[in-house]
Design a protein around this nucleic acid. Structure first.
Length: 265
DNA sequence: GCGTCGTCCTGCGCGC
DNA sequence: TGCGCGCAGGACGACG
């Protein structure tokens, strides 16, 4: 599933290819799902950037083409069997492949995210200087939700999905069901450190490619961070830190993985 | 206002 | 072998 490291990998590959290119058309056959895209035709792409799990093409005339890959979406340089849209540029075509149709593709005025409330409320970028332990503490203190649910909301910090939330919480020795506003500052600091270290390492390895809904890079190559997953998808296996069996349970409707010894409540 | 839950969608794995 | 069920996931609207 595309989370921050996967989306960042896509951005790094595509950004140099699309910068300064003119966008000729966004072609698709699902007008109910992908709306209002005609206005992008003919505009030059200033740059491709990432915000959390969103890819944003900054266009001329203060417009943004915003893409969310959902859970199975990818941007490819070749057509796939589940291509839902083609972004046609002067020199190349980028294919939006999305088997499960959870992805989004829309054109908005720059910075106007009324149609994307999660993007509008999004917390700081975890790999930026704005993301400090103190900032994280402030945002966690404001909610009574379970820690993992809070992280998945994108409000304390941008870009974490199910995989990297589980991995970061394991790294910080925190239980996902802990109420977010009960953390001591040393625990927030451990979480802050774990989030940054997990995401940095995952970006280096090109993200995680799993069997189900497999994410791949634009050139079709996989990521390799799944080899280093400590808990995600490893129920029944030994915790890499203490050897206790990893357990899986459902929290907020999401499959969740913990080491019952390292992550006591 | 806040938190939780159901829904969207489709491929795949498993059980019968 | 083949069928059908259930699960996976991010975002968001509905509901309590």
């Amino acid at each position: 599933m595309p989370e921050l490291p996967e989306v960042e990998t896509v951005r790094r590959m595509l950004a140099p290819l699309v910068a300064e290119q003119r966008l000729l058309a966004v072609v698709h056959d699902d007008p109910l799902r992908y709306r209002n895209l005609d206005g992008a035709a003919g505009l030059r792409i200033k740059r491709l950037r990432r915000r959390g799990k969103y890819l944003i093409f900054d266009l001329e005339r203060d417009l943004e083409l915003v893409i969310h890959l959902g859970m199975s979406g990818s941007l490819r340089l070749d057509e796939g069997s589940h291509t839902r849209a083609r972004i046609e540029l002067e020199g190349l075509t980028v294919f939006f492949n999305d088997p499960r149709r959870f992805g989004k593709l829309l054109l908005v005025p720059a910075g106007d995210y009324a149609a994307l409330p999660t993007l509008a409320r999004m917390g700081p970028e975890p790999l930026s200087r704005n993301f400090t332990a103190r900032a994280l503490a402030g945002r966690l203190a404001g909610t009574r939700r379970p820690l993992k649910a809070a992280l998945l909301s994108q409000e304390p910090v941008a870009g974490l999905g199910n995989i990297y939330a589980d991995e970061s919480l394991w790294g910080a020795r925190l239980h996902p069901a802990r109420r977010a506003d009960t953390l001591a500052f040393f625990e927030v600091r451990a979480l802050h450190r774990a989030i940054r270290s997990v995401l940095r390492r995952a970006v280096v390895l090109g993200g995680s490619t799993l069997g189900d809904g497999a994410y791949t890079r634009p050139d079709g190559e996989p990521g390799y961070f799944q080899i280093e997953h400590s808990v995600y998808g490893r129920a029944g296996e030994a915790c890499p830190r203490c050897g206790r069996k990893i357990e899986r349970f459902v929290l907020g409707g999401r499959s969740t993985h913990v080491c019952p010894r390292c992550q006591s409540r």
